[in-house]
Write a protein that binds this DNA or RNA. Structure first.
Lengths: 128, 128
DNA sequence: GGTTATTATATGTCTAAAACATATATAAAT
DNA sequence: ATTTATATATGTTTTAGACATATAATAACC
């Protein structure tokens, strides 16, 4: 087994866990879209650092379709390469509602923890 | 490559990303503790579902020590098996401060996204 | 006309946090 | 004696996301 190998400084990179799935479901809730379109809109949702990985998006779309949360049709009208356009299903819509619940719980626990952290940060600033 | 194999219903299990590290750092900020103690206190922090995985904790403690964020001493006083007691270092304390910043950013993006989700949930409840 | 850029989809491999499982030992409780 | 609680540790699997690259159609450029 290879060694874990992290920086001695304990540096870490923040990873937003499972944000692609709910983000895509949300963007498709508004209206049907193709992968590339999602790729350009995802950063505006604020969940992201710099660039979006196309691989992650197209793979997620395939998974969502397999799970029946979205369905797709090829769109060959217009210019450029063919687009696979995804539509949110009823199942997908309900899934998004459940995601909202889950994310709210996530926020609540995050809030509780941040409150504790802020309390100790306060103490830190008291001593100059 | 094995198949992804997720439930057809699109079920997912919430995973709290990178919560063990800041949680342990926070608990050690209060006072030095051994692994088993952390294991019992972690659920109270709210980040958790049901049970804590001891493996994750002990491995994280080893990593934190390698990174110089904590240091440990064996405590053989008292009854029961020997305890390895961990103390937060200055580096560890600073690391916790940086974690606080990172988690605040995480909360902000989560808040922004939840605001959008709540807006569509509102619309859903409007139609009976 | 030929090269480059943009639009668009797709697959392959790697990383690492967490989940799941199990091994080991001391001592107290039944 | 056997079970339970305390305590630490390692082995294996899963999986979201990161990183890299392949592909093709068409538009834009010189």
């Amino acid at each position: 087994m290879k060694k874990m190998q992290r920086q001695g400084c304990g540096c870490y990179r923040e990873r937003h866990n499972r944000w692609i799935e709910p983000s895509i479901l949300y963007l498709l809730y508004e209206k049907k879209k193709h992968g590339y379109e999602l790729m350009t809109e995802l950063p505006e949702l604020g969940f992201i650092g710099k660039t979006v990985d196309p691989g992650a998006i197209y793979r997620m779309l395939r998974h969502l379709e397999q799970a029946g949360l979205v369905f797709s049709q090829w769109d060959t009208t217009g210019s450029g390469p063919a687009r696979r356009v995804y539509t949110l299903s009823d199942l997908g819509r309900n899934h998004l509602y459940r995601w909202a619940d889950a994310l709210e719980k996530r926020r609540n626990s995050l809030d509780a923890f941040l409150a504790k952290l802020e309390a100790i940060l306060q103490k830190k600033e008291d001593k100059p």
